[in-house]
Write a protein that binds this DNA or RNA. Structure first.
Lengths: 174, 174
DNA sequence: TCACATTTTCATTATTTACTGAAAATTCGG
DNA sequence: CCGAATTTTCAGTAAATAATGAAAATGTGA
């Protein structure tokens, strides 16, 4: 029975890892990074580089680069096991933490640069006189206002505690 | 003066189009599609394929494919000008519309498949007995719950009228 | 300081994704 | 129907991105 359970669990976990990797692609993060994330998020123990490599059948360089990136994001922590020279890695398991980390990163990469561009374009055209220029400037302002709004929302929600966010969401959905 | 204004406007618009294209890359949509979107979103008139091709210096096939995709998304409408056999294209200009369209598409591509996966993995492990299986199943449930939440929120916000959304947002930010 | 274990880098290769341009299909006035 | 204008497709190519694997660098205990 334990053997059967172990097998089914391993199977489910493998599917999760594989598919989460495929999803990562849609999210603009590469397959290996998403797979490692899935692996560590569902690992009962911290893993070393070789375990990750074997588990996913990827090269050392690939495993290394993506572990590093995940640590950068804050989705994975490096763990030192005393008496062992290898680095171990442990995935963040708290769902709200995972969400806020990803939200922050996406904001940084997707919202902030857009806002900068819209600011610039609105600024450059604010004194122009023609009718077309007015229309263009107005469009930039509208976009800017909206994106700035989104930016603030994102910050606000990301900095909430889990419980508060749930409360808020309940209000919206209710 | 009008000439100077026209030049500055054209310059600002060109920058916007180019940079919006670069941003599109981060958003997971290809450069050309994002550029056409920017172009049409700021065009005072509907444009035909050849105008788009010339404006962005891309091939007919490329312009065609991406215009089609934008029409699919609903970010661009096809316009028939009588007495002219060419198809013209007009970009959606309303910022809230643009947002809801993009939000819906992202939900479809990013949230829905994740939810399906999490459902499946939670289901497959719900009767397993071992301690590790319990932990895994619990993790899937937490993720599922969260993503399902996000999904409902997305639906709810996307289906709001602009005014209502602003009201809500004001409450959150205030 | 040396030998060994481990991490890190990076030039090369593979894979994926986007684009081109020309040919085929379609549409429409005459 | 015919022929010109336009749209659509798609095989081939180019560009961008990701992964490999081996070599170099780093760290460590003896």
């Amino acid at each position: 029975m334990t053997v059967a359970t172990d097998q089914k669990l391993e199977q489910a976990r493998e599917e999760f890892v594989a598919q989460w990797g495929a999803l990562g692609t849609q999210w603009g993060i590469n397959r290996t990074m998403a797979q490692i994330h899935a692996l560590l998020m569902t690992s009962p123990h911290p893993m070393c580089t070789d375990e990750v490599m074997e588990s996913l059948a990827v090269s050392r360089g690939n495993a290394h680069a993506n572990l590093k990136e995940l640590v950068n994001w804050g989705l994975v922590r490096m763990i030192v096991v005393k008496g062992d020279r290898r680095d171990f890695y442990e995935g963040e398991k708290d769902v709200w933490q995972i969400f806020t980390i990803i939200a922050r990163e996406r904001k940084r990469r997707e919202i902030d640069p857009a806002l900068a561009l819209l600011n610039k374009c609105a600024e450059e055209t604010k004194d122009l006189k023609g009718a077309e220029a007015k229309v263009f400037h107005n469009q930039m302002k509208q976009l800017e206002e909206f994106v700035s709004f989104a930016s603030k929302m994102s910050d606000r929600v990301s900095s909430m505690r889990h419980g508060l966010a749930i409360q808020l969401a309940t209000k919206i959905l209710g």
